[in-house]
Design a protein around this nucleic acid. Structure first.
Lengths: 277, 277
DNA sequence: TATACTAATGACTGATTGGTCATTTGTCAA
DNA sequence: TTGACAAATGACCAATCAGTCATTAGTATA
């Protein structure tokens, strides 16, 4: 494990327990068994660390639910699978989920706030796509409102397994929320969040991932990954992004090499978005 | 205005903007135009201040919605009035609402956590009473689940006017949520939070379960369960709790016998908590 | 073994924290 | 005007913070 990963894991645990502000760099380095100086060899600052954590896990979460919505072929079960995937991800990375909920609107750091909004919008987009696919014209006026209901459900119910250590039947939970969502989609008529209001709320942020950002993420992944296929695919794609030199078919093939690798699928998602595929 | 009130108002503003941890006593006293020493004449510590704030506003909020539920005589409009009152209160005390959402699960302070749980339970009770009054037998199995839906709606939609400064039509919002709640109450069937799960959650929140309580729960389960493995495991664990006589490995094994049985996993959870495993 | 280079250390800095307390200021009645 | 007492002050404390950097340890090459 790289030092960077070691630090991130230690920090994750402490941030989840105490919150970001209340956790000192000293505590993190002691918990990781390294010196304070070593921390600053991996991260320029404490802020850079939390942003790294947010990026890492949010990308994984988003690529997970995006994958389900894009590739699940049984519409009847899609809602169910969506919730199951989301909650499974929360449970798997419960320390991160705690941090995410805690720092969601509590931070002072400007960059972090816009990061959060950015990811929130990506989630919105995925939920919206799902609702459109499932209900089409039926929800044309209510879909923006429904996004908030879905997120409301996810928030309240996720508290259950995040902050009370209760064993829960995620399958039943997903089924229950799928039923509720479906009921609202089919019968709710009084919409509060219209398309216009939704657009107004979100017009604040509209930034794409920059070339530099995506290159940095790929480089980080290359160091992290040992498997030759994935590693080589990443190197080739990195060069292609610096200066396009591969045919669409090759790019697509390389991306599919990454799609099913658990630690590469989020970068695969980012690349698909960046290359507009 | 008393010095105490002056300090509370200044702190409210700063906590809402920056969070509790990130706001220093110095900042508060400067903002209030008093000396640092004067702060400690009114409050024994910074923690006492935040607890005072939580108490003050939560009591007002809770008495507001309780009053609506208890005294509103037109059942047809009750849901609507409930949401309107809640959101009106959020809007009127938006600084406090921000603090409440931010610190809800982020704080380290033990007293504050139990305060929060206490008020959360009071809110639950009010919502539950409202649902029972409106739908009676109809929601006998779904009402605990519905509490979480109502709170989910309140949480997501309140973010809108708390963190985006957009003028919103609270009347329409309340109407929309009342319709949604009513739909779920009438048609939702797949309940996730059963009465038993709800009670389990709230028991663990409270002070620790006592030995007598846990023994009683186990005895009740033993009578309820027919399967020999689960039943025998319960009997052995009961003896172990009366007087510890089993090795950690055996205890762990017995608990895992219970974990996957749908009607035993709650008691398994309680035991794990009680035995601090 | 000698050299060159990177990785890692932890004592240190200056700033800030929550909280204290000797001192000053303000307000009374006598 | 004086004395008594409460209200208010802010310099001060030890602890802790994020971040730095001269120094050392470890490793690879010649």
């Amino acid at each position: 494990m790289s030092k960077k990963q070691l630090i991130m894991e230690s920090a994750l645990e402490l941030f989840a327990k105490q919150g970001f502000e209340a956790t000192s760099v000293q505590q993190i380095t002691e918990h990781a068994g390294i010196s304070k100086g070593a921390f600053y060899l991996s991260f320029k600052s404490k802020d850079e660390l939390i942003i790294g954590l947010i990026d890492h896990f949010m990308l994984e979460f988003i690529s997970d639910i995006d994958h389900v919505v894009k590739n699940h072929d049984n519409d009847k079960n899609l809602l169910n699978e969506f919730y199951k995937t989301a909650f499974h991800s929360f449970q798997k990375h419960s320390d991160f989920a705690k941090i995410f909920i805690k720092e969601q609107s509590q931070t002072v750091n400007e960059e972090l706030i816009s990061k959060m909004h950015h990811y929130d919008k990506l989630i919105d987009k995925i939920i919206l796509g799902m609702l459109e696919r499932l209900y089409g014209e039926e929800v044309i006026y209510t879909k923006y409102d429904l996004i908030y209901c879905v997120k409301g459900f996810m928030h309240t119910y996720s508290q259950l397994f995040l902050f009370f250590n209760v064993p829960l039947d995620l399958h039943l939970l997903s089924q229950s929320l799928a039923e509720k969502t479906s009921l609202l989609a089919k019968y709710a008529e009084t919409t509060f969040i219209t398309e216009e209001l939704y657009k107004t709320l979100n017009e604040t942020l509209n930034e794409k991932v920059t070339k530099a950002q995506i290159l940095e993420i790929i480089e980080q992944k290359i160091e992290e990954i040992d498997e030759p296929t994935e590693s080589e695919s990443l190197v080739l794609l990195k060069e292609h992004i610096k200066e396009p030199n591969l045919s669409p078919a090759i790019v697509k093939g390389l991306l599919s090499n990454l799609k099913d690798h658990s630690r590469c699928k989020q970068v695969s998602y980012l690349l698909r978005n960046y290359l507009e595929l």
